[in-house]
């Protein structure tokens, strides 16, 4: 790609990407830390995680302001226009990822005194790993302007959905076994749902990368595997 005649424009566009990668790095970190604070029953760590979401929010606001200014001052067109709009959208998605991770950390504080059923954390750990890897991959695809890689992430969200389904069923089972589990399990259910939502935001970023690089959104329906909205368990567990 040849450079803009106006060098400051070139620098501004590069500056947007730098901020996205900074935001993305923070969001990734937050997802991991939120789960670790949950698994390690560490309320202090959870509090620190909640607090660090503020940095992501700040970066989001800064990016929004920069994009608005650039639209006003530069009137970007073609690939520049697509980049500027994509930055705005990706920043919004990352801000949501930060919020969801923060929510996991808040729940980690709430349930830090409880003993977790052992097998449950394995599923949540798996979801966290998958969500973090997906997020990292999509941010790499963004930085490398690689739509194929983004589409791979887009298709792989199904794996995260599959683990979510099994965690969902498992949690329901625990709740049915002993009503005293309901408080803890409800928190864990929201944790799982948050991780599943992080996956969805990641696929939105993947779609935006496709738009930014190709000028069109991916064709067809994204493979979706979250069946929990239509799942109902009743009666005693056999």
């Amino acid at each position: 790609m040849s450079e803009h005649i106006v060098k400051s424009y070139e620098q501004e566009l590069a500056g947007l990407d730098d901020k996205i990668s900074q935001m993305g790095g923070l969001a990734e970190q937050l997802v991991g830390e939120a789960f670790d604070s949950l698994a390690s029953h560490n309320p202090a760590r959870a509090r620190a995680t909640v607090a660090s979401d503020a940095t992501i929010d700040l970066l989001h606001r800064e990016l929004e302001e920069q994009v608005i200014l650039m639209i006003a001052r530069r009137q970007p067109l073609a690939n520049d226009l697509r980049q500027v709009i994509s930055v705005l959208k990706v920043a919004g998605e990352l801000e949501r990822v930060g919020d969801l991770a923060k929510n996991v950390a808040k729940r980690a504080q709430a349930i830090s005194g409880e003993t977790h059923p052992k097998g449950l954390l394995t599923g949540l750990q798996h979801m966290t790993d998958l969500a973090s890897r997906q997020l990292k991959d999509v941010l790499d695809a963004y930085a490398a302007r690689n739509p194929e890689r983004a589409m791979q992430v887009w298709r792989q969200d199904e794996n995260l959905d599959a683990v979510y389904n099994s965690v969902f069923r498992e949690l329901l089972t625990y709740m049915m076994e002993d009503p005293r589990n309901i408080g803890l399990c409800t928190h864990l259910l929201f944790v799982a749902k948050n991780l599943e939502r992080i996956g969805d935001h990641t696929t939105n970023i993947a779609e935006t990368v496709t738009y930014m690089t190709r000028g069109s959104l991916p064709e067809g329906e994204r493979p979706k595997g979250d069946l929990t909205s239509s799942t109902l368990m009743s009666g005693p567990i056999r």
């Binding site: 790609m1 005649i5 106006v6 067109l77 073609a78």
Partner: peptide, 11 residues
Amino acid sequence: RTQDYITGRFG
């Protein structure tokens, strides 16, 4: 060439 021109990459 169209892209470069309309985005201000050459005059």
